[in-house]
Amino acid sequence: MGDLFVLAISCIFINNILLAQFLGNCPFLGTSKKMETAMGMGMAVVFVLVMAGMITWIVDVYLLKAMNVEFLRTVSFILVIAALVQFVEMFLKKSIPGLYAGLGIFLPLITTNCAVMGVCLINIKEEYTFIEALVSSFAYAVGFGLALVLFAGVRERVILSRVPKPLQDTSIGLVTAGLIALIFTIFRGMV
């Protein structure tokens, strides 16, 4: 239990998927202009990543490894993730429209979110057990959401300050993200 906690902390803070691993940056910059959007995206990522983490782990262990075709990992993972996302989107739209309005609209962004694919690959690379993979998927997603929300908070203010014209928008967003990445080094070595 303690190990899982340490793993979670490490995934959220220390190896933060966005700020230390550089995964999922496109939506990071795209959806962080408004706090509302950031929250929605964060939740959607948590939701999808946990499911994707579990499914890909199962695919990897029970299909790829079992059949000794590990070289198909990339193609099978991405296909599974894409199908999952699309399925979830359709499902939510029909069955839980309220949730769809909150999360669903972010789902298409997730197919091409390398954080999802990245975490699934990391889970395999680090040879996590199913539980570990579950925890790490969840924790990475929480880390993603946390970074996104923190970033959105700062960015909402930065957008309103008098940023020089050539630096506006994405440019200053990246600089801010860089400083946040710098700040996140504070967690180094804490576990």
Partner: peptide
């Protein structure tokens, strides 16, 4: 269709 979020919306369908 890049779902890049650059428009400020969550994805192209939005």
């Amino acid at each position: 269709g890049a779902n890049c979020g650059g428009c400020g919306y969550a994805g192209c369908s939005a």
